[in-house]
Design a protein around this nucleic acid. Sequence first.
RNA 1: GCCGAAGUGGUGGAAUAGGCAUACACGCACGACUCAAAAUCGUGUGAGCUUCGCUCGUGAGGGUUCAACUCCCUCCUUCGGCACCA
Length: 805
Amino acid sequence: MAKQYDPQAIEKKWQDIWEKEGTFRASNDRSKPKFYALVEFPYPSGEGLHVGHPRPYTALDVLSRKRRMEGYNVLFPMGWDAFGLPAENYAIQNKIHPAVITERNVTRFKEQLRSLGFSFDWSREINTTDPAYFKWTQWIFLKMFEKGLAYKQEMPINWCPACKVGLANEEVVNGGCERCGHEVVTKVKNQWMLKITAYAERLINDLDLVDYIDRVKTQQRNWIGRSEGAEVSFQIVDTDEVLKVFTTRPDTLFGATYMVISPEHPVIDKLGDLIANMDEIRDYQEEAHKKTDFERAELNKEKTGVEIKGLKAINPVNNKEIPIWISDYVLMTYGTGAIMAVPGHDERDWEFAKKYGLPIVEVVAGGDVSTAAYTNTETGIMVNSGFLNGMDVEDAKKEITAWLKAEGLGAPKVNYKLRDWVFSRQRYWGEPIPLVHCEKCGWVPVPEDELPVLLPDVKNYEPTDTGESPLAKIRDWVETTCPTCGGPAERETDTMPQWAGSSWYFIRYTDPHNDEALASKEAIDYWMPVDWYNGGMEHTTLHLLYSRFWHKFLYDLGIVPSPEPYQKRTSHGMILGENNEKMSKSRGNVINPDDVVNEYGADTLRLYEMFIGDFEKSVPWSQDGVRGCRRFLDRFWKLQEMVMPGTEYTSELETKMHQTIKKVSEDYENLKFNTAIAAQMALLNDILQRGTINEAEIKTMLILLNPVAPHITEEMWVNLGFPGMVNEQSWPTWDEEKTVEQTVDIAVQVNGRVRGQITVDLTDPVELARAKALDNENILRFVEGKTIVKEIYVPGRIYNIVVKN
RNA sequence: GCCGAAGUGGUGGAAUAGGCAUACACGCACGACUCAAAAUCGUGUGAGCUUCGCUCGUGAGGGUUCAACUCCCUCCUUCGGCACCA
């Protein structure tokens, strides 16, 4: 034995063995406790695997492997989120069917993942573009349609002129397209929408049921943006029209000196006859419409607006007539599209009032409303507010809300920033929306037994400038008959967004080949919810929120057993290039995992990615660091040459062994892989110093390292003639008492500064420790001639002597 | 602007129920092996000084304490999220 450590030879060998023996298949034995570990399935791009991919995969692979050794039935699956733009764009350029490209990319990705030795259960591999899979994506959509959660609406959407596709709010980043960065413009389109807002409250509240890292919870709450306030009705003078506003500060109602409505507000057209300056209004609307959402939302920008001449509203608390303005700082998509302006206590309103000379009334005392809006709600007392005078803000809110309700002028109201989900894409490479439009019957679902609705085979995938899907041109696909009346009808030509398939894929893994249902009831009940889901922070407001929404919907249908899909959510940091910048071809700092595997081995790559730093933070790649990890494995390999017989830990190593088992076990659980590995490196250093190790000790070391470096540990296990495989062993346990060193060196301090060291036994009485401390020459130098005021002895930690002159 | 996280050697990073700051790794220096280099092994490596020891040192400045990277106060910087959301 004791050949050189040759990862190229052993890694392939073990990967084949695991595959042949089905080592990592999730078992059907439902009597065992289950552990469902999930990582985000990749989009199989033409670029191949990125060194960023293995980081989260290795992390949960470590947990999965550990859980199996702890006796769990583990489900750790992998699949492909394969619909999407890059494949379609490539198809357009190269005239190849996106399915062909997808298949090619999947093959490559799978090979790469396999070469890294992940313990995925490949028998459960899924692909969102597989008709057997998207049949159920379409099925879920139809259920939503049935329940009124999917609706088509004419609405302004975010349009990317480069991708020629509509984007959800979440896909617009700083005014640009998330995918290509091109500036996003507004376009009015008839779009399928999913009513995620119906679940807003539950999506916030149920965060209390799950164990997500705080930043994820915070970001979700932020994004949903719940705010409590009141809806208040303002009568428009001489009409039957009422302008409703939403406000979080109903207490300041007496200070509302004008109103502002959004340029898109329908009341403008409704009461057009009464408006004296309609031309001016139309111009303003035109201007506002031309701006992109980003331009409209851009801060620093000076507010603009036009007064609507001819319309006045009545402030319901004091019956004063107040003017109505339009301005694009009021958004039609939030609240009611109209606000009451309280310039004394709202910065935006204050700015607007100053610019246009509108009256500013102080209704909360404490500031100086002539110089700035006073927004402090903690200490202010109501003034100029009739029956609210003298109250603090909180009481005034309650009082006025009760009053509004009693008078029929308003009611408490909760609003959310979250908008409904624009679910249509004008693209070819996505799940067809399984609906048919009939002149007579309207939108009719494709009957369940006709699912899936397949994509037609076409030559041309080009999206159109008009914003229509390329499918619209395939007339013999579009033209069909109405399932209800049998008359002529047309298929919906929009397809679903990429987020559709990933909104429920974790359910499919539990029973991936089922053709009767999205998964069997038994499989779902046993495996769901996912116990641990790790993924990128970039998916917090998109995929994570969407999939929670779909899961809640399925929960309401009685299909899944829990209101939440994921019990625990953690997140990993990015891997940057060696120059500390994001890895990208254009920056020339891309590291290819294949190269690392070929040169150093998969175990080195895995080890390095886990050792590189805090799992949750971004870290730059370091080729030197990779070499260091390989060195560790080379040194670890050499342990084989010094193994002595023994069924117990040797007494010199016992404490260290128990300490290491504890440290490694706990650190793996807390995603502290870097320190878990450091502890194993330290133990190895100790042992190499000593020059011997016995069988009991090396067995434990092999098991501890196995989750991170599975190939080398299996190979060494066999080399040493141990029975079975490492992955079949039980995870080692530690004895808390045995982790405590009996004899330790501790520092002796004088006035808090270290002046010497003593060796004490934990059981030493204070007197003995004291005697040892004062036996030290250097200590005596600092104590002599001074008065000892106080002595603190923390056994096993420190001995501190406080002296005074 | 609001919310959140974080600032530690030349580098990645350890250590927070307060108890020897810099574990582990990289890099660097020197030594061994070698004709030589690489690899490997060994030693050293926070800064400074009058070097058996002392002084300073965890973004800055205060404070609490026998003792502070850790707790409190005031700042500064960086990163992330939200951002005219009424």
